[in-house]
Amino acid sequence: MLELLVVISIMALATAGIALAMRDNGQTQLEREAARLAALLDAGRAQSRASGVPVRWRGGPQGFNFEGLAPNALPHQWLATGTLVRGNAVLLLGPEPVIGAQQVLLTHQDHPDQALRVVTDGLRPFRVESVQ
Score class of each variant (00 low, 15 high):
114 Q>N: 06
45 R>P: 07
34 A>Y: 02
19 A>M: 14
59 G>S: 04
43 A>F: 10
42 D>Q: 03
30 L>S: 00
14 A>H: 04
106 L>S: 00
124 R>D: 11
75 P>A: 05
132 Q>S: 15
93 L>G: 02
17 G>S: 02
17 G>Y: 00
33 E>W: 00
8 I>T: 15
45 R>T: 06
25 N>D: 07
114 Q>G: 02
34 A>H: 01
108 H>Y: 09
101 A>P: 08
125 P>H: 06
45 R>D: 01
53 V>T: 14
118 V>N: 05
116 L>T: 01
92 L>I: 11
106 L>A: 01
4 L>K: 14
84 L>V: 03
132 Q>D: 14
36 R>Q: 03
68 G>S: 08
105 L>G: 00
38 A>Y: 00
67 E>N: 10
43 A>P: 03
10 I>T: 15
69 L>I: 02
92 L>E: 14
11 M>L: 15
119 V>I: 15
1 M>R: 15
18 I>W: 14
32 R>W: 01
63 G>E: 01
57 W>D: 03
75 P>V: 01
26 G>K: 12
62 Q>H: 13
69 L>H: 07
40 L>W: 07
61 P>C: 07
120 T>E: 04
77 Q>L: 11
8 I>F: 08
128 V>F: 03
123 L>T: 13
71 P>Y: 08
74 L>V: 02
3 E>G: 12
7 V>Y: 00
25 N>C: 05
89 A>F: 08
100 G>L: 03
130 S>A: 15
